[in-house]
């Protein structure tokens, strides 16, 4: 039985590098189909938290659960590798710097993992690539190499690559931060489309307007703790905490 209210569950997440505590006892629930934005100043731990969800950065304490299965299970090395590879197939991730494979065309970027991990035939893989690239509006660039694409186009291919694994959850780590301003919107449109399809998403972003328009819930993090959380209407319009207000004031002033 899957628990739709506790689809993603972070319990007492804690992470430190030596004496430096980056995450201090963070707990969070995300329901199925929910979209959560994490905002906060740089160094607040928001990216670290996101990267802990698929164990790119291992936690030093606490648990991550996805759809009733613990992600960061305590297992011997070999078993853990197997387990985490299985889990990661269900967790798509999009990076700030795209991280497309430069030696592969858009098509191969999208199909490599499904072919390797799900044993897709060439024909099925091609169909999948066309489907996913069409979804992000990149079908006509299917046989282009990353070096031939703009930043926004690269990021859309990267999203298609993640979606091709049919993930249950998508993580976005500042997906538009490295883009020229005029290219941000094409990526945001794709993310909006995913939101309309009720994809469960956790988004680390510094774009308040976008977060306000698509997210169900906003988390404001600072210095490794969640300072404030709630619907965007509350967090952005009437924050209860002084630190949140200060951050928003500075950030909005800086953005204008």
């Amino acid at each position: 039985m899957t628990d739709t209210e506790h689809f993603v569950e972070i319990k007492h997440a804690q992470k430190s590098f030596g004496k430096l505590e980056v995450l201090k006892d963070i707990s969070l629930n995300v329901a199925r189909g929910q979209i959560v934005a994490i905002i906060g100043p740089s160094g607040s731990g928001k990216s670290t938290l996101l990267r802990a969800i698929n164990d790119l950065d291992a936690l030093t304490g606490g648990e991550i659960w996805l759809d009733g299965v613990q992600v960061n299970k305590d297992l011997p090395y070999r078993q853990y590798e197997k387990h985490i590879n299985q889990m990661r197939q269900d967790i798509g991730m999009v990076f700030q710097h795209f991280n497309l494979f430069p030696h592969m065309t858009a098509r191969d970027n999208v199909t490599m993992a499904p072919k390797l991990l799900k044993g897709l035939s060439k024909a099925d893989a091609d169909k999948l690539a066309e489907e996913q690239l069409d979804k992000v509006g990149m079908l006509e660039r299917i046989d282009y190499y990353p070096s031939q694409l703009s930043g926004g186009q690269k990021q859309r291919v990267a999203i298609a690559r993640a979606l091709a694994m049919k993930p249950k959850l998508m993580l976005f780590d500042e997906a538009t931060s490295a883009l020229d301003p005029e290219l941000v919107d094409e990526v945001n449109q794709v993310m909006k489309k995913l939101a309309e399809e009720h994809m469960t998403m956790i988004i680390v972003t510094h774009e308040m307007d976008f977060a306000a328009s698509v997210c169900d819930r906003v988390l404001f993090m600072d210095k490794g703790v969640v300072v404030e959380e709630g619907p965007p209407s509350v967090v952005f319009k009437n924050p209860t905490k002084e630190r949140t207000r200060e951050f928003l004031r500075k950030h909005l002033a800086g953005a204008k």
């Binding site: 698929n54 790119l56 590798e81 590879n85 299985q86 889990m87 990661r88 197939q89 967790i91 798509g92 991730m93 990076f95 710097h97 991280n99 497309l100 494979f101 430069p102 030696h103 490599m112 993992a113 390797l116 991990l117 990267a158 690559r161 993640a162 694994m165």
Partner: peptide, 27 residues
């Protein structure tokens, strides 16, 4: 080879060896 390449492949669920063989080594 930039660290992000390894991370991207691992995030898709590729094992260490698959990541090395398909993503890192060709580059």
């Amino acid at each position: 080879i930039p660290k992000g390449q390894r991370e991207a492949a691992r995030t898709l669920g590729l094992s260490r060896w698959q990541t090395f063989y398909n993503a890192i080594l060709p580059q």
